[in-house]
Design a protein around this nucleic acid. Sequence first.
DNA 1: CCGCGACCTGTCAACCTGGACATGTCCACG
DNA 2: CGTGGACATGTCCAGGTTGACAGGTCGCGG
Lengths: 178, 178
Amino acid sequence: MSLRHALLGLLAQGPASGYDLTRAFDGGIGQYAWQAGHSRIYPELGKMAEAGLVVVDETGPRGRKSYALTDEGRTELRRWMLHWPERTAVRDETVLRMFLVQSLEPDDARRLLEGIAEHCAAELAKLRPVMDEVDAEHDPREPVPFGRLAGEYGLRQYEAVHGWALWSLERMGATVPG
Amino acid sequence: MSLRHALLGLLAQGPASGYDLTRAFDGGIGQYAWQAGHSRIYPELGKMAEAGLVVVDETGPRGRKSYALTDEGRTELRRWMLHWPERTAVRDETVLRMFLVQSLEPDDARRLLEGIAEHCAAELAKLRPVMDEVDAEHDPREPVPFGRLAGEYGLRQYEAVHGWALWSLERMGATVPG
DNA sequence: CCGCGACCTGTCAACCTGGACATGTCCACG
DNA sequence: CGTGGACATGTCCAGGTTGACAGGTCGCGG
């Protein structure tokens, strides 16, 4: 039941409506960590409110309901963050493809790896300037801006995959030169 | 429906029974890429056989049924591997935690990051010798052993996360020295 | 002042998933 | 020869998840 904890974590930044949270899942967190659509977010917020983890902070126009963490919610988030189970849930289609690269014919595998390397290079070219800008605007005496650590994670992830794809190509090239 | 493609990919290595495939998911693929228990694997194999993607290759003792890929199955696997959708399914509890590190108090965050760094270092210490041994035993003129690319992926993944955790600690340390 | 696009909340049915339950066989070792 | 542990296959159900359906509001540009 990690959706609940994702929502708690997002609300730890500050109060937000179901709509805001839905859009947050369109961004980095939904791309790399956990996906959720509004149809699950609204009911879950309701259940969390029932459980006392969040409260409706304020209501706005168009029936907007802003939710805020309660102390109980913050405690639960902390408990979950610090308590790591032995085995965590993973389901990543991209990584699955990487595991199965070797089930392809060498030519197909090479083409696939080349595509991966290109894709990573393109993402890095997009992400690096954004992070550099965040760093440039940020006063080092202030706390690290929310999301900067996650951004760095994405950056390093792409770098790792990029390096891996190039390494794999080299390694396969030795087998079937051409 | 990636379970189907995970099974196709595993069967591309050679025929296997539901039991064999279940154990494969206990290993690297289940840890990093996609999880599945036998309760989903057996019915899925049945459906795949119905769809003509696999056939029962041979039967063994204890009702063992060994499945093998058909040409149709191999084609479907290739189609899936080479066709990347815009957005792929991701659901990774560990990455979620990394995204939410900054929702913790700085002290908790530091402790968590230290734990992550240690864990990665420990996994690397386990994985590196295994990969080195694979390389030592492997004739470079032969094709890359199945799983070697995936192992390298895991290695680089841990290296990346390790580096990220250290970077994050440094970055947070600048904020609250201690 | 009108309409369109973004905002905002919700439900429902179909499907997927994980863990418990169920059943039985082979084989190596004592 | 008996027994424990690995081998092997399956079902079932509660709960999670997705995508479609549904309904309504605000605010701005024409």
